[in-house]
Design a protein around this nucleic acid. Sequence first.
DNA 1: GAGTGGTCTAGACCACTGT
DNA 2: CAGTGGTCTAGACCACTCC
Lengths: 264, 264
Amino acid sequence: MASKYDRIADDLRRKIRNGELSPGARLSAETTLMEQYKVSLPTMRSALAVLRAEGLIESRHGHGTYVRELRQPVWRTNERYQWEKNRVRADQNERRKTGATEHDTGLTVDDLEFAASYDDSETADESLAKAFGVPIGTRLLRRTYQTRSRRENSPLSIAESYLLYDMVKTNPDLLDEENEPWPGGTQHQLSTIGIELDRIVDEITARPPRGQEAETLDVPTGVSLIMLRKISIDTQDRVVEVSDIIMPGDRYELRYTTPLERWS
Amino acid sequence: MASKYDRIADDLRRKIRNGELSPGARLSAETTLMEQYKVSLPTMRSALAVLRAEGLIESRHGHGTYVRELRQPVWRTNERYQWEKNRVRADQNERRKTGATEHDTGLTVDDLEFAASYDDSETADESLAKAFGVPIGTRLLRRTYQTRSRRENSPLSIAESYLLYDMVKTNPDLLDEENEPWPGGTQHQLSTIGIELDRIVDEITARPPRGQEAETLDVPTGVSLIMLRKISIDTQDRVVEVSDIIMPGDRYELRYTTPLERWS
DNA sequence: GAGTGGTCTAGACCACTGT
DNA sequence: CAGTGGTCTAGACCACTCC
């Protein structure tokens, strides 16, 4: 331990933490830093690589190296699920006004760009088969959603939602991506085929982005991904939807409220 | 894009995904790979650095480079909170038997090593003051917990729990770390000063480990940290405990069940 | 064109792990 | 001891951004 680049990284990390280098500030050029710290360029660069991996700095080619700014977090709460359920029974005008993402972020429909695409040729792999409790190979409807803020380039999140094809085909409207965005969202879509949700189970984990993901989500190295699998279970205890949602960890915070039964 | 090291990383990533290189397998030595791919050593090393950052491989000095094995995830569910609350009213023998971590992991008390330390000289910083709804500088009791499996070196998690000093001092037993592990956990501790919890709010985010954290948690680069702030609110709507819990993302999965009200 | 970060090389030496 | 990955150097050239 205590290699040269480690000590340099420690020094810069300290300067960032105590505000000597504030968010948005530009660091000196690599060649300048290399002279300041009296090391070679590759060594200086590996010191910066450490901080980049920690998400503390960001380098822009031909531009400079900057202290990362904290992005305002978007909240995703589990209260949205009950809110969505209540909205299913509201009239269509009310449903059209806002979606669940707006509920979370406080942004209006106009701020958000929404893209959906459907694919009805998907079949269940091992993981999905287990989640749904069906055999591997069962036909699914896969729906891909991208939400992005109009003010920024990077998507807020990417979601893949899976429905059992045989279950939803009874309402052909549900198979057509042209009907997106569907006022009232998935819970309302399911209600058109007589499904009422009993509970939603969220499974959460986190890992670094891999290869292509970093590009499609446009996250720099140094940002973790929050992986959320959302499993919707109806009043007959059937798994009716499985959704895999990917969120950049520097943009999102999840909030779950767990009520407890009273003693008295 | 499509630099040499990127193409090499892509190739190796593909080999890992399709099983040509299975978990635990040892890659050829860097010098061998460098000849195979006809690049210089530093270039070969930066290809490996990419995969290391993605958590796909792990290098052991003087030993070799290996495909990371998937570790069996430990589940942490929000059902534990109600389970803990129920246990407060169980008798002491029952309470002594198991703790919440055992509830989650399925491991028994004997498998787990538990370390607690108290510090009653802590005061609330901005973030904690806001969470508790008290002025900055308010005296707190800080309790640090480390849980580790006896079979492994790395801690399962690190938790820092904060209580309002003036609130808990009425029971001096709560100020003494020698009483840990306390049968029945924090909810039982709070019950000794007349506190009943109404709900628990979990705030979750994820980010890469920074400098020292990587060492104390003994996680390689390429593992994300799940940061969980748990806020306990009592029946009088007071925030009575705030806990910051750090979990390695490759070991943990969180599961939250949200029940929905019925329509009928 | 000037200044920046990104890629790549060839080679030296050190530090750790096993036998 | 041999084999492995880790650190560091000196220097060349490329690619991007802004003026």
